[in-house]
Design a binder for these strands. Structure first.
Lengths: 159, 159
DNA sequence: AACAATCTTGACGAAAAAATAATGATTTGC
DNA sequence: GCAAATCATTATTTTTTCGTCAAGATTGTT
């Protein structure tokens, strides 16, 4: 179980914007250089993030990308969800996936585990905002306690 | 963030063996049919699980696979770790991955998050045994509470 | 108006993951 | 000892994911 390249770098690009002074913006080449990825690749990621409403883009000279919403309002769970959409899990046990095309219909021992994990991760990510990733409290230790504290905002499914 | 096909189906194969009456065994074709995967694919998975010491295999007529260790002693975290080894995350922020080849050396905002997530998931999976997946208490609800309860067996890293 | 800088978008190629195929080795039963 | 059934291991193919390219569209500057 791991984070995909698209998830990781998409998130990174947003962090770059969030770290800017109020109202600042970055061009594609600037973002690409800061993340060590190609301009083309950064372009596609920013396109996704723009479509999803996280960033605002302006074309032409002096153009670039800036955050559309305040970093304090953007939760990591939203971001991951968007960057994942292209790469949706097709596994029959997946939280979002198809349940019908499965040979274990109605008696699958591991489905509850997979669903539980999805909820666990989403719950953890929903407690971290973009702003927190660039603030002063972003040590592994601080993040650990944030990720591992449970605010029961997600309720068990009756599946 | 999702579970890989190898992780999911490897786990499923073990569940099949764990669901058997004490000392029972299954052949490759039997496992493949029950999981809806090809025999060749099941073969590779069982080979991995055998190498890792989860199952015992016997060749020849009347051969097959059986659990090497009691299902009560096998935690999901161990299983996932083995099935993941082939497909190790190369991301610079990964818990197990390389940290040096990263352009964000020493000041990467999202690394703590990724490490935290890895710990979170591992912690959750370490609290579920194979036996619990075939027992009577395996509803989504029960699994949810098991996955989401935190026993602080994993401690924050000083990274 | 012309030009330069920038984002947009679809198509293409490369890399990684997953599935399959193929060949070899071991055991059982006759 | 031979044939059938089974696991073991490596190689190949297919699929999916990732990254790149190229042509187009928009905006600002001179």
């Amino acid at each position: 179980m791991k984070i995909s390249a698209q998830e990781e770098y998409g998130l990174r690009c947003l962090v770059q914007l969030a770290a800017l002074p109020e109202g600042g913006s970055l061009t594609l080449p600037q973002i690409a250089e800061r993340e060590g990825i190609s301009i083309a690749n950064a372009g596609k990621l920013m396109w996704l993030l723009n479509k999803a409403g996280f960033v605002h883009s302006t074309r032409g000279t002096k153009g670039g990308y800036s955050l559309e919403r305040p970093a304090e309002d953007i939760r990591l769970s939203e971001i991951i969800k968007v960057l994942d959409e292209d790469v949706l899990s097709k596994h029959c046990g997946s939280y979002t996936g198809v349940l019908d095309s499965c040979v274990h219909n109605g008696d699958c021992g591991i489905r509850p585990v997979i669903i539980g994990l999805h909820m666990l991760v989403e719950n953890a990510l929903s407690q971290i905002t973009l702003a927190q990733l660039v603030g002063s409290e972003r040590s592994v230790d601080a993040m650990f306690h944030r990720v591992h504290s449970i605010h029961r905002t997600v309720e068990p499914h009756g599946v």
